[in-house]
Design a protein around this nucleic acid. Structure first.
Length: 294
DNA sequence: AGACACCTGTAT
DNA sequence: ATACAGGTGTCT
């Protein structure tokens, strides 16, 4: 699914489509995928809203909508494994022309109230979530932004922070530790695999044993990795596309993810596969040794 | 920390 | 037919 670099790429590619546009009545093909924890708000309230801002927090997109005479609305998008948010232009001729697994259609009007394009939400596996609420009531969002850690590309994501968090999760394997969204908001399995390899840290190493040097290295490698991945438009393994339906190409630069059994790009030894916390993790037993004192 | 649940599509 | 996939939430 979209991890931080993919969500950021979707955000950047969607931005130009939202300029000078107004939402028309949404077409909800699958109720239940879009929900609202605030009884006073209905899907039809989106009608007439204009886009005020599109931001990202971890793997979430936050779309702020404004309508004169009303409090702003926030539409929160999480892509799960196969969620896609696409801009179709020109709009499909009719409902039957929509891509499969389209669950929501948001028509966009220009200043003359002509439909110029439509935004669609599609999600094959339906693990994604759409939530809308009053923008000043994010406290109503139960599953929410509650415990998201710092942005890995922000100022608060520091070696000291990593070390502090690591001590709170003594026995947790590093792979699971980094997947925890309260540690690095937006990290997912691909970038955890890659980051641990770059930093030469075993995915099995208990977080509590993370050294200061390792935290320093990891912090730096995560920043560089995510920055490079965004520059490449993210990783398209299967379903992920940007707002224009384009694939990313960072998958061409993956060093270990999905490469179990192949030679390590650093030392040539065979990359091994582990299941850690229910997720497959690929690492090099030579470059990422554990126990450290081999 | 691990198992399982939520879903569908694809590969073997 | 079975295993597996960019995630996350709940239950042992």
């Amino acid at each position: 699914m979209p991890e931080l670099p993919e969500v950021e790429t979707i955000r950047l590619s969607m931005l130009p489509h939202l300029q000078q546009r107004q939402l028309a009545q949404p077409l909800i093909l699958r109720p239940g995928l879009i929900s609202c924890p605030w009884p006073g708000l209905q899907p039809s309230d989106l009608d007439g809203c204009q886009s005020a801002a599109l931001s990202r927090r971890g793997k979430y997109l936050l779309w702020r909508l404004q309508k004169t005479g009303r409090p702003d609305t926030l539409l929160i998008l999480h892509f799960g494994m196969t969620g896609e948010w696409l801009c179709l232009s020109p709009p499909p001729a009719d409902q039957t022309a929509l891509p499969s697994h389209t669950h929501l259609v948001l028509p966009l009007l220009d200043s003359d109230h002509v439909i110029r394009n439509v935004l669609i939400w599609r999600d094959i596996r339906r693990f994604g979530k759409l939530i809308y609420l009053p923008a000043d009531r994010t406290d109503l969002w139960p599953a929410g932004l509650k415990q998201l850690g710092p942005e890995p590309l922000g100022q608060d994501f520091t070696p000291a922070f990593l070390n502090r968090e690591a001590k709170r999760h003594q026995r947790l394997p590093m792979a699971s530790f980094l997947l925890n969204q309260s540690v690095g908001a937006g990290l997912g399995n691909i970038y955890v695999n890659e980051a641990l390899f770059l930093s030469q840290i075993s995915p099995l190493q208990p977080a509590g044993t993370l050294s200061a040097d390792q935290a320093q290295q990891l912090c730096q490698d995560i920043r560089r990795l995510l920055t490079r991945a965004i520059a490449s438009g993210g990783s398209s393994l299967r379903d992920y596309r940007d707002a224009d339906g384009r694939q990313g190409h960072f998958q061409e630069q993956h060093l270990v993810y999905g490469r179990g059994g192949q030679p390590c790009p650093r030392c040539g030894q065979t990359l091994v596969s582990h299941i850690i916390g229910g997720r497959r993790v690929i690492s090099c037993p030579h470059c990422q040794p554990w126990p450290k004192q081999k």
